[in-house]
């Protein structure tokens, strides 16, 4: 069976002044195409580190990751960047919008980097889709938190990724706004058939995914036991 994401014996250890610190250990994880997976866990459990490794943003100390059937271990940073460009989209907790660019320009940026000639039209369409058709020329500081996250979602889906990684997408928002943003995220995900990997500490949000796994002290658990898939 073809997996969009396959992590094998994944581990991450960093060197600190106090000695080696293991953040992740023996993670095995498979995600099939179109599946939605929630990774939950307490603060400091290694959720964001795992997301970084799965998305090819960081390199593991042990084990390996296959993304869209491409072994990331065999690639250098340039190769991993190409895999991300071809297959991956992101939504971040802190939105990661460029403050000097308008909402439209923020969404256009990844399309322009890919060389899309109709970046302007596509970006406009996606911003219309997320309900910001009237705020194209607004800068991030002029937008509310919820609006900024909508721009980030539009940017993520504008490149039509195979896999969307969302890191605490509502972590900086109030619950009402967060709920609306989640609805939008899942709606677009369903529309485009994207594989979704969602990092959250909110149980309610995690439950909207087809599958949930939990991280505790760097190890993957399912319903309280070590996950073996």
């Amino acid at each position: 069976m073809a997996y969009m994401i396959q992590a094998t014996e994944l581990g991450k250890t960093v060197t600190t002044s106090a000695g080696d610190l293991t953040i992740l250990k023996d993670i095995n994880l498979r995600v099939v195409k179109g599946e939605s997976l929630a990774i939950t866990g307490a603060s400091g459990s290694g959720k964001s580190t795992l997301l970084g490794l799965l998305a090819g943003l960081d390199v593991p100390s042990a084990g390996g990751v296959e993304l869209a059937e491409i072994a990331l271990n065999s690639l250098d940073e340039e190769g991993r960047a190409k895999v991300r460009a071809d297959h991956v989209g992101f939504v971040f907790q802190s939105f990661q919008l460029l403050p000097g660019l308008t909402a439209l320009e923020n969404v256009m940026l990844p399309l322009e980097l890919r060389g899309d000639r109709d970046a302007h039209d596509q970006a406009s369409q996606y911003l219309q889709r997320v309900g910001l058709g009237e705020r194209l020329s607004h800068y991030p500081p002029q937008l509310s938190g919820g609006e900024q996250q909508r721009v980030a979602i539009a940017r993520a889906f504008a490149c039509k990724p195979d896999i969307l990684f969302a890191d605490e997408p509502t972590g900086n928002l109030d619950s009402t706004t967060g709920h609306t943003i989640n609805d939008l995220l899942f709606e677009l995900n369903a529309e485009m058939g994207t594989t979704l990997v969602l990092i959250t500490h909110e149980e309610r949000l995690a439950n909207r995914c087809a599958r949930q796994v939990q991280l505790a002290a760097g190890e993957l658990m399912i319903s309280g036991s070590a996950a073996v898939e």
């Binding site: 998305a55 943003l57 940073e77 340039e78 960047a81 190409k82 895999v83 991300r84 460009a85 071809d86 991956v88 992101f90 990661q96 940026l109 990844p110 980097l113 490149c159």
Partner: peptide, 8 residues
């Protein structure tokens, strides 16, 4: 930009 897949 790098997370969006832009090479160094």
């Amino acid at each position: 930009l790098k997370s969006l897949g832009t090479s160094s």
